[in-house]
Design a protein around this nucleic acid. Structure first.
Lengths: 243, 243
DNA sequence: ACAAAAGTGTTGAGAATACACCCATGA
DNA sequence: TCATGGGTGTATTCTCAACACTTTTGT
């Protein structure tokens, strides 16, 4: 089957990556650079994205886009919103940029976010100029991509409280404090270590391993893993009405 | 500005209506009927929806679609997902139907749901053959609209636990038992009346009115209203990690 | 030995749950 | 007066929040 682009429908991907060492929640962005006659016309950043092909599902488009940028497959992804304002690609730099590209100014984009570990991505081999930026310190962004990132981030903040997606951002083996640091990064809050620790350790799907950290310069911490199997078996929706 | 359709992008609307008398959560559907030479080719139901116009935002399309069907504006709406599988409009009856319509078999639809009261909709004047069906007893549906409705319903079940959207489905003045009945309808669970009542009455944004039900054949119940103002003032996100 | 981060317990308050009967009203 | 749905109270359990010091380890 010939791959044929749908020119007015795209998928954009907010790739969230957590760096457990620097405790930083990052977004992967691509430099958009255009010059003409020695003059820099456009120099900012955008999300990775591409047109949907006629034979693809939207999920497949997202998976393909991530794979082409990072080589990764089987990462957690979520379609969280469609963006389709008529003016979403019509500021000055966007118009300059689109002039060189084969797509419609009236394009609707289906936005996804991915959750993964920064360490799983090697940026050297890419021909795209991809870079990680902390989610709270983003550069100038093209199109409506700032809006898209903020909405993805809001959704992530909400979802990480009720679904075990936090572990998609952490290595398979993690410490309790890693989890706490991650929650604090995402939510921008402080959490009491004793209460948090007790709560997490009491969950049956948080499993203590026979291992401790290695290569740390201070007291090594106990390592744990998350068992999705146990989580799924235990978990039943509790209809706690909390309006 | 000339209204020009985007032929491969549509908005579909799951219109949820609650009937406080029959305690039934309903979905508004349109009969899709096609015959040729006395033979009935298609006779099933679909959601209301339409193409996006080039000058419209997606939200505006949804608002327009609802208005054209029901006359209503300013109803609660939520964009909840985009559906774009290549085969979503390609079963036999869909193809027959599309033959008569001006749209692409590779159409992506942005799905919204609306929350309103069935009593606010008058179905007589409509030229569309619109009918309410209980969400748990739907007829045969065209396209992928069964999937869309089920996903809308899942989202509603989840959201009604954490956001005060339940009141969009109820009249301005309601009884505590109305709210309980509605939760029980949506979630398919039973709730203890004493505990529920206490909990709700203790909320400052649930305001007891100086009124009781009239025209009921038994003891009339106290009426209450919901104050969104008070809710918004009081409400602050509590970061309760409940994984 | 010391610096640094890991790890540990208790208490009080508020919320959730379980549970069964009386009350007010219209017919 | 009676049938119907409206409305009420208490005891128990559990979870959350607040709070500061000791332990372990590598250097």
């Amino acid at each position: 089957m010939k791959a044929e682009k749908i020119l007015n429908i795209s998928v954009d991907c907010v790739v969230f990556g957590y760096d457990v060492n620097t405790k930083s929640l990052n977004v992967l962005l691509i430099n958009r650079f255009l010059e003409s006659k020695g003059e820099v016309l456009v120099d900012d950043y955008v999300l990775t994205g591409y047109h949907v092909y006629t034979h693809e599902t939207l999920d497949e488009t997202a998976t393909r886009v991530l794979k082409e940028l990072t080589g990764l497959t089987n990462q957690y992804k979520k379609q969280f919103k469609a963006f389709g304002n008529p003016d979403r690609l019509t500021n000055e730099k966007d118009l300059l940029w689109i002039k060189n590209e084969e797509f419609n100014t009236r394009t609707i984009t289906i936005a996804y976010y991915f959750l993964l570990k920064t360490e799983d991505v090697s940026l050297n081999n890419g021909n795209d100029k991809a870079t990680w930026f902390p989610v709270n310190d983003l550069p100038i962004l093209g199109f409506d991509h700032n809006t898209i990132i903020q909405e993805a981030y809001e959704d992530l903040k909400e979802k990480c409280l009720s679904e075990p997606i936090i572990f998609k951002l952490l290595p398979d083996k993690f410490t309790i404090n890693d989890v706490q640091d991650l929650y604090e990064s995402i939510l921008g809050i402080e959490i009491d270590n004793r209460n948090f620790r007790r709560k997490l350790i009491n969950k049956k799907y948080i499993i203590a391993l026979d291992e401790k950290q290695v290569g740390v310069s201070k007291r090594p911490a106990q390592l744990y893993m998350f068992s999705l199997d146990i989580y799924n078996k235990m978990f039943q929706k509790n209809y706690l009405i909390s309006i």
